[in-house]
Write a protein that binds this DNA or RNA. Structure first.
Length: 198
DNA sequence: AGCCCGATGTCCT
DNA sequence: GGACATCGGGCTA
């Protein structure tokens, strides 16, 4: 069994790029029911830099029913619905900034198919597989009491050589200059990246 | 009220 | 590489 411990309350209250990089290798834990605990490792993230980032939902200080959670406490969960059929999971870092969780590696609790099917390699796919929807919007992603949370692995062997790629974010084409900002991060050589190329 | 398009994924050629 | 499914959010009016 994978052991984990919780983060400090202010773990996410840091520079968003730093949090996005630091999330690589951390655990995402999903409790479906008392029998079913899915533990995965975060292998790919993207940083969204708030009101000054044209690709960010809160760009220009937009405060709407959708984006309001991006301005809540660091550690808050932001889930949005996209393309009429997918959800995407984010960790709020405050001030309208957030980190998108783009890909996971299965660790424990998963079906053997999940280890070959790439069912966690993409922001929409991982939410579908983990049954994440807007019910989690606004929840506390740093609390181990929740049914969905991020935690620190006790056995840090995967983290010792945490080399990662950085590259442009996916699906950001019409954001001008910001389309090229290297704000996508992925663990090097992970077979579970949403796309191997950076 | 209406319009456009998107932080995606899948299937096709 | 390109089409497209499918619908809520945000902007215009």
């Amino acid at each position: 069994m994978v052991k984990f411990c919780s983060f400090k309350e202010n773990w996410a209250a840091r520079d968003t790029i730093e949090v996005a990089q630091d999330l690589l290798g951390k655990l995402l834990v999903r409790k479906l029911d008392s029998q079913n605990l899915l533990v995965s490792q975060i292998v790919e993230t993207e940083a969204y830099l708030g009101v000054e980032d044209p690709a960010c939902h809160s760009f220009g200080g937009r405060k709407t029913p959708r984006t309001q959670v991006m301005f809540e406490n660091p550690g808050t969960c932001y889930v949005y619905f996209i393309y009429g059929m997918y959800h995407c999971l984010n960790l709020v870092t405050g001030n309208g900034e957030a980190v998108l969780i783009r890909a996971l590696a299965p660790l424990t609790g998963f079906a053997s198919d999940d280890f070959k099917n790439k069912s966690l390699s993409g922001p929409g796919k991982l939410c579908r597989r983990l049954a994440i929807d807007k019910n989690f919007n606004g929840s506390n992603l740093l609390s181990t009491k929740e049914d969905l949370f991020i935690a620190d692995p006790q056995e840090t062997e995967h983290l010792l050589h945490k080399d990662f790629h950085a590259g442009p974010r996916v699906g950001i084409d019409s954001a001008g200059d910001a389309a090229h900002w290297p704000l996508r991060f992925g663990l090097k050589d992970s077979p579970y990246l949403s796309r191997p190329k950076f």
